[in-house]
């Protein structure tokens, strides 16, 4: 059974979550799968042109030119070996390649793990305007619902209004927050927060940081200082560091991931704004280059519009459609 039929059967009975996931991904799915299907109809049997158009579809999804070329090459090779020329089956091989390519790059575990007796510290990093603060609110809401005593730490002391933004969320969510004066050293705010969490037995601490472009050496150094300071207060912390990436990001997303991985111990990526028209192909590119998994995806502006990343569903949404 090909992967597509497997996925189809798996999601035949649509649970609620899949439904929401699909709604959010609707745009991406329509774009990608419509194009793929149009392509299938245009060609009775595949030729050079078919593969070129396939390449175009992948590149237009922000998968990246190198990865796209590689995937196409793999598909081409296999189709030659197996003597397959039916477009439908070629597409199945394509999805197969993407699936295996992602899955073989490392672990797939989305949910955070919590330890007895010591707070789990999550450091949230990313470039400007990707939705760090909103994602933090969504994550806080998610784990508060699971009964975790949660503390927010407003270590973005730079951007005008950032602390206020997080404070508004803390009030709405009914979780505690640590803030510092504007322009304060973010590392000291982070330290205060983590210290409070340790002394007052919080389960979960989320440290918000200012958006920074990965090319700013001094700001990246500041980030590594924040990380160090947190580690001084709680050994092993931050246990998790999430890089937040906007789904509309192009190949610069890979550069972002590389640069942030140099100064922090990246344990996951959260893709935000996946409810737009972009295809989030950067998910595959980042995994391919760095092996860092996508843990969650943001599908809207409401607090519960955050879903665990599910490779099956993602590829299903992207390639199969309905």
């Amino acid at each position: 059974m090909g992967l597509i039929s497997f996925l189809k059967s798996k999601f035949h009975k649509k649970d609620n979550q899949t439904e929401k996931y699909n709604q959010g991904l609707e745009k991406s799915r329509k774009n990608f799968s419509n194009k793929l299907q149009n392509l299938t109809m245009k060609y009775k049997s595949v030729n050079q042109e078919y593969f070129e158009e396939l390449e175009e579809i992948l590149i237009e999804s922000d998968v990246g030119v190198n990865l796209a070329l590689q995937i196409i090459e793999d598909v081409l090779e296999e189709s030659k070996k197996e003597k397959i020329s039916d477009p439908q089956r070629i597409n199945e091989i394509l999805v197969d390649k993407m699936f295996v390519g992602y899955a073989s790059k490392g672990d797939i575990q989305n949910e955070l793990t919590f330890l007895e007796g010591t707070p789990t510290v999550l450091l949230v990093v990313g470039v400007n305007g990707v939705g760090k603060t909103t994602t933090i609110a969504k994550l806080a809401s998610r784990y508060k619902k699971q009964g975790k005593k949660t503390l927010l730490v407003a270590a973005d002391t730079f951007r005008a209004g950032a602390t206020e933004q997080l404070t508004v969320w803390a009030e709405r969510l009914g979780v505690d927050i640590i803030t510092g004066p504007s322009e304060a050293d973010p590392a000291s705010v982070a330290y205060d927060g983590v210290r409070k969490a340790r002394l007052e037995n919080y389960d979960f601490v989320i440290v918000d940081t200012a958006g920074r472009l990965q090319t700013k050496a001094n700001l990246m150094a500041e980030l590594s200082k924040i990380k160090r300071v947190i580690g001084k207060e709680i050994e092993e912390a931050p246990q998790e560091t999430f890089l937040i990436i906007d789904a509309t990001t192009g190949q610069n997303g890979v550069m972002q991931a590389k640069a942030f991985a140099e100064v922090t111990n990246l344990t996951g990526v959260v893709i935000t704004k996946m409810d737009g028209t972009s295809k989030g192909g950067i998910i595959l590119a980042i995994r391919d280059e760095l092996g860092v998994p996508v843990r969650f995806i943001g599908l809207g502006e409401k607090l519960d519009d955050l879903e665990e990343f599910d490779l099956d569903k993602y590829l299903y949404g992207l390639c199969v459609g309905e």
Binding site: I59, E60, S61, D62, V127, G129, D246, T248, T249, G250, Q251, N252, G253, Q256, G276, T277, S278, K279, G281, I282
Partner: peptide, 9 residues
């Protein structure tokens, strides 16, 4: 427009 945006820009 964010300079880092991809094909969707």
């Amino acid at each position: 427009v964010d300079a880092m945006s991809g094909q969707d820009a």
